[in-house]
């Protein structure tokens, strides 16, 4: 009796394994978890200079896991503390790229691991009224003037081509110093951790 039971279980197990192996038309891709360090996102003007903020946004693609200069194949882009998504419409600031994709997003109060499923009802696109990704940092004011990515803010993002990613920004300063000083440390260097779900239509991580 016992051997038969074991045998059936073994057969079942093998067949499950072989099933996934055989399914060639829709390969199930592995979820990618990465940390990007020192993504430089400079800006010109602003901050009391009397001039409008300008300069190219630094674009990033989750599928390649790298910065890109492509005008269409990008998901998220950074310029100073501004973060835009490749979807919706432009706010119209100087040098802001046009949106070509269908990217959208929201900010969730959670840990990165705590986001297991995208709440698609919350997804919003950038518009001429404002960006979707705001309020991701805390500004300390004097004396140190530090910009700290607010702990517990997770950027949940639908990419330009309809996949999902979740992002936790860790630092705004070069080499993510332990105790940054807003006046002396080099800023506009993003360090962030993200999890990318490369499978089309899957909203879980």
């Amino acid at each position: 009796m016992r051997t038969i039971k074991f045998f059936t279980l073994a057969v079942l197990f093998i067949s499950i394994l072989s099933c996934s192996d055989d399914n060639d038309d829709a390969p199930f891709l592995v979820i990618e978890s990465e940390t990007i360090s020192n993504l430089h996102a400079p800006q010109s003007g602003g901050q009391g200079s009397g001039e409008d903020i300008s300069g190219a946004f630094t674009k990033f693609s989750f599928s390649t896991g790298q910065a890109t200069t492509s005008e269409t194949e990008w998901d998220i882009a950074f310029r100073g503390t501004s973060i835009i998504l490749n979807g919706g419409t432009s706010l119209g600031t100087t040098d802001e790229p046009d949106r070509t994709g269908e990217a959208s997003g929201y900010i969730a109060d959670s840990t990165l691991g705590g986001i297991t499923k995208v709440n698609t009802a919350l997804l919003k696109e950038d518009s001429d009224k404002g960006y979707v990704i705001t309020g991701w940092y805390t500004y300390s004011g004097p004396p140190k003037h530090v910009i700290t990515p607010t702990p517990g803010k997770v950027l949940v993002i639908k990419t330009h081509d309809g996949k999902y990613a979740k992002v936790e920004i860790l630092s705004y300063y070069k080499d993510a110093p332990e105790n940054p000083d807003g006046l002396t440390d080099e800023s506009r260097y993003f360090t962030f951790k993200y999890v990318y779900q490369p499978n089309e239509g899957i909203t879980t991580f």
Binding site: T111, L112, P151, G152, E168, L170, S171, T191
Partner: peptide
């Protein structure tokens, strides 16, 4: 939430 160092995730 808080994080212990700039390179660790928040909890």
């Amino acid at each position: 939430y808080a994080r212990l160092t700039p390179s660790s995730s928040s909890f």
